[in-house]
Design a protein around this nucleic acid. Sequence first.
DNA 1: ACTGAATAAGTGGTCAGACCACTATGGAGT
DNA 2: ACTCCATAGTGGTCTGACCACTTATTCAGT
Lengths: 206, 206
Amino acid sequence: MSTTNHQKVYYSVLEEIRNYIDHHRLVSGDKLPSERELAETLYASRSSVREALRAMELLGLIQTRHGEGTFLSNYQSYESVELLASFILREKHTRQELATVKLLLEKEATKLAIHFAENGDFMKLKTIMHTANSGENEKHMAFFQYIFDMTNNLLIKKIWLIIVSFTQTLHDLYYEQTFYKDVITALQEKDSPKIEQLFFEQLINR
Amino acid sequence: MSTTNHQKVYYSVLEEIRNYIDHHRLVSGDKLPSERELAETLYASRSSVREALRAMELLGLIQTRHGEGTFLSNYQSYESVELLASFILREKHTRQELATVKLLLEKEATKLAIHFAENGDFMKLKTIMHTANSGENEKHMAFFQYIFDMTNNLLIKKIWLIIVSFTQTLHDLYYEQTFYKDVITALQEKDSPKIEQLFFEQLINR
DNA sequence: ACTGAATAAGTGGTCAGACCACTATGGAGT
DNA sequence: ACTCCATAGTGGTCTGACCACTTATTCAGT
């Protein structure tokens, strides 16, 4: 019944580090105190401090450089998403589920890209699809990598990359040859329903 | 443990643990080997094993009980999410990305659900939204949880759950009151473009 | 034979200290 | 002014110890 509020040390360390970041107005790239200094300041052992820092590192919140120090990550890398995914995707998800999510992400990204696409982009996409010395899977990857970059949404791209990496081991990634050309056209005409239709055709073609 | 390839020990440990879970077909609630046993098996120190376990714990992948052991979790534990979110959501850009992906997933799930919806489902959804003694966020969760279950796609649901758990700590999840009613109607009429339109209105309303 | 309390064994939680590997720095020698 | 390298500072890892908590075992009292 005793509600012992025994918080683990590494957890308090995490909170303290967050407070430190806030209080010192640290931004990406700034250096954190050394492990030994943190340990002394927070009255914790270096092991406990490291447990907290390693967790943060794995989540992509910080970046450690051997011999240099610990730094706030320069960009939001969504490392935690990858780690989570590697555990979630280990389960018995069917090929069907993976393929569906992959297609949905590609479709939505394309529709998002409508709002950002400029003239040069269409040319670039066409060039990608006409690169001679690359396989269909490589073209597909390059094509949508470009699309996802256009969306300015790193998170959705990250999720897609993970899904794709799992899909790739099962079967091919790519759609029909004419599909990509049609997508570029629809993108150019900012025709969202057309994109919806194009992907839907691929969905039922499987 | 071998330090070849500059791979940090705690990271190898993490991969090994994932392999162990995979190989032994562990499911939620199952017990992992003790820290000492893992250290011995993986030729790593207990400190390194703990660094890996703490990171997994922070992500809600495992649950440790003092004196008992370490157990595989169903990663529904929202315990550390708030702390995690306080780190991850520091940048406005990140919040935007999360909100967009959340909306896209909900939209696509709803459209997928069209193909599975039966008469009883609409009634059930209406009931959820008319439950008196529950907040708007709870209604929203229950509503879409039901939608996602209809899609028979566990993967997309899990992705959504993770996204939502982070979003929730920051601001409200839900849309306008009339929105849900309109969605049910569109679902009933299998009107995919209407669903598209409804969500799009919410997107620009932010 | 049964019950219950004391004990032991196993587990996570934490700490201190040691050593290694790597990086940046600054001073000695040119 | 330049180069070189010893050195200090940093993260990376390991060992061993002790504490706190939970469960299993033992054993005394009935």
